[in-house]
Structures are given as C-alpha cells and as structure tokens.
Design a protein around this nucleic acid. Structure first.
Lengths: 237, 237
DNA sequence: GCAAAGCAAGAGCAGTGCTCTCCTTTGTGA
DNA sequence: TCACAAAGGAGAGCACTGCTCTTGCTTTGC
C-alpha cells in the first residue's frame, strides 16, 4: 500500500509541506524578493543545505508557490461563481471580478508573484499553465452561457484583426464568435489592470472608495464584452 | 558664475550622471532585482563605498531611475500625441496608448520598475508624482477636448458611486462630468493591464498578433470613455 | 594660509544562494 | 539476517550583496 509505504516517504511529504508553508508565510509577510532559503531553513530548525534536498533552487520553491497561488486564486473565483451560479451572466461576471480583487487584496504578495513583475532570470515552466487558466476559463464560461441563452450583441471586428481573432477563438472558445473572444481577452487583461493599479498603489490619492469604483468598472467590463444589463432569468437586481 | 563655480561641483554632476547611466544599463540588461551597487561601482572603476557619497542607498538610486523612467515614458507619449495633435480625439487617444505600449516594449525593465511589483520595503516618495502624472494628464486633455468640441455621451452613473465620482472629478478634471472622469480612470488602469499582460508574458500562446490586438483594444478603451468613431473636426453627430 | 568640507578607498559586518564533503539513517534484495 | 546503496542532514566554504566605519587625501571658502 502506498500509505504504509515508507515512513521516509511520508516524512518527505511532511517536510516539503512544512517548507512551503514557512516559505508562504515569509512571502506573505515580506514579499518574494525577501524570501530567503536560509531564513526558511532557520525557522524550521534545519541546515540551509538540507533544504536543497527538497527544492533544488530558490526558483523551484518559487515555482511551487506560484502554482499554489494560481490554484488558490482560481479556487476563490470558482467558489464565488458557484455562489451566484443561478443569476444572470452579468452578475456572475461581476462576482468573479470581485473575487479576483478580493483575493488579491487578501494576498497581495502572492498576487504580485503571479501577475506582477516576473522574477528576473526566471521563466515559468509549462506546469503553471493549467492552474493559471482557471479564472480565464470561468470568464469564458459565463460569456458562453450568455451567448447560448439570450445572445450577445455581435461586436464589429476590423478586417486587420480578423485572422488573429479567428485564431484566438479556435484556441480558446470555438463556439463563440471571434469578435467576442477578442473582447473577452482584452477584458481579461483589463481586469488585472484595475486590480494591479489598486494593489500597487497607483490609485493612491486618486481613487478612494475603491470597492464601489471597482464594482462599477467590472460592470463596464461586462458591458464591453456584451453582457448587457439585468437581462435573463427572473428579472431582479 | 555658476558654470565656473567648482570643478568639484561639475565633477559631482558628471559622476552622478555616470552612475545613473551605468545603473540604467544594468537595469535594462538584467532588471531591477539584479541591479547591484557594487557592480555599478566596479564598472565605473571606483570603490563601492564611494558610491554612497552620491546615493545614500540602493533605494535612492532606484528612485532616481524611477523618476527618469516616468519622464521618459511621459515624453514618448507627449511626442506621439504632438505628432497627431490635429486629428480627432479617438485617433489621438489611440496614438497615446500605442506610445505607452511602444515605450514599454522598448524598455521592459524600466516599465516593470514603475508599473510592476513595487520593490519591497520601498515606498515611492512624493517626488515621483509629477513625472508619473504626465500620461494621465495627456489622456484627460484628449477627453476634455472631445467634451468641449462635439460633446461626449453622458454615461450613466450608479448612485452609490456618485460621491466618489464627484470627488475624483473635482481633483482631476473639474470641467468634466463625474461619470466621464470615472470611466477615464478605469480606462487608464485598463490600458496598463493590457500593456502589462503583454510585457509580462501573460499573452504567451494566447495573443499572437499583439500589435493589431492592442490597436483594437485601445479603440475599445476610447469607445468606453465616450470617444466615438471617426468624429473629428468641427463635424457634429 | 589654513581649517573645513568633500571625496575616495579599504576593511569589515551580516546577510544571501549554492556546492561539496562527510556522516547517519533508512529501505531493500540476496 | 545482514550488507549495501540510496536518501537525508549538517557544516564549512565560495562568491556575492548592501551598508558602515575609519583612514587618509584633495579641493574649497574664508
């Protein structure tokens, strides 16, 4: 049996988890740049060299934390979406956006780790892709539902962008009109612009009531991809 | 006379500039995290301790580079705007957006320095504010012109956001309707979401023809703040 | 002409990531 | 059951970092 298989294997899993936990603690407290392998080892009462048996380098530790962060964010967004799954697309869209913002405010350094400046000399391995895609898939799903249901306004698409739009649609959502997919990708990036500006202090002395501002901006984003007003379902608001 | 006044003063200016130049070189090559005072000093053939006569700490050097970066970006945006100053607001808006993107692609590490993850334990001094505002002022000016000219569509503004919108408008552009200012601030943040995603690799395997995609997205942004199609000139609509 | 201020250099401190060697513990196949 | 290989831990050490302190030298202003 794999559960009995090895006090050693079990210990390895435990130690690995303990390292990640302590690293996450330091990350949350001080940020990625100040995350120190030696400090983690010190806190865990082990020699710094021993830590390299578990993570071959600092970057590998960071990669593990990055994947966890993507998953944590994805989970938060999915939970928020599930909680309003029976409402209209617009409300669901806004709920997901607000979940992203909420998670970012609660985990600023982890957000910075995944959506901020990439760590220099570090390129995220393909391993991170599935975890990173979760929020995007959620947004695509909302728009897809709206498209199947009441229909989305078909946006105009300049000729120069048509090939690229078709390519993106084929990759991301073959059942959606290319023009919509293009708007969706743009809105996705713009969402993170809003969150990033608030988080990284760009709204300092500019926006005060950030909650209300964000809700409004998220609504605009929804409108931009064609998710128009109350719409759908038992009309309510 | 102040020009003759001091071979020493002149030397100081020169050395300070040389330090900044070399630091900018290293910043461009390796990123802010790998910028090393010792390496700068080494390259300049001076002792690392001597460098502290010019910049009391690494953060102070970074602050100087940040201000320069904001100014460089602002200058690029203003130049691009001036080149199309006689066209319609929409074209001018897009031109400024494209200038921001172009500058960011040409100076990725400097862009990351000002719009990416803040350096931990570092808070930008108020000194950076004027330089940082240049692009924003440009965008406000474009919308103001449009408002004075043909008029902007008045966006709806939810009651909950009205106080905040009026506050922002009073601060940023008292002559513009609060609803427009709100959209403007959101668009401003969204612009940097688009640029950041491209720059930090989030569009990897998602968007290929980024030039065309960005132009389209910038147009959407313009539309979002009320800068509708060709428009231009004294022509009304 | 001379004291004061400005500047350069070196040594040194405390910290970093990472490697190498040595030693102990553990799991396994004969 | 026991020997042997693999896995893990610990310490020393390398090359680097930001930063400080002391020691001299040079330019400047009175």
């Amino acid at each position: 049996m794999s559960s009995t298989q090895g006090a050693r294997a079990r210990a390895r899993i435990e130690v690995t988890a303990a390292i990640k936990d302590e690293a996450r603690r330091q990350l949350a407290a001080e940020g990625a740049a100040r995350l120190s392998l030696r400090a983690v080892a010190r806190e865990l009462g082990m020699a710094s060299s021993a830590l390299y048996r578990y993570f071959p380098s600092r970057d590998d530790l960071l990669t593990a934390l990055i994947i966890d962060a993507y998953d944590s964010l994805g989970e938060a967004a999915e939970a928020a979406h599930a909680a309003v799954a029976d409402t209209g697309p617009r409300q669901r869209w806004i709920a997901v956006c607000e979940a992203v913002r909420g998670w970012a405010l609660a985990h600023p350094h982890e957000y910075a780790l995944i959506y901020g400046t990439p760590v220099p000399g570090y390129t995220a391995p393909e391993t991170t892709v599935p975890a990173a895609a979760r929020v995007g898939l959620l947004l695509i799903g909302i728009v897809r539902d709206a498209h199947r249901g009441t229909g989305l306004a078909l946006p105009s698409l300049p000729a120069e962008l048509r090939p690229e739009a078709e390519r993106m649609a084929a990759d991301l959502a073959p059942d959606l009109p290319p023009g919509v997919v293009t708007l969706l990708v743009a809105a996705w990036a713009q969402l993170y612009g809003l969150v990033g500006f608030e988080l990284f202090g760009q709204f300092h002395r500019v926006v005060e009531d950030r909650e209300a501002f964000f809700r409004h901006a998220a609504g605009q984003l929804a409108q931009g991809v064609g998710l128009v007003y109350p719409q759908q379902g038992p009309a309510s608001r």
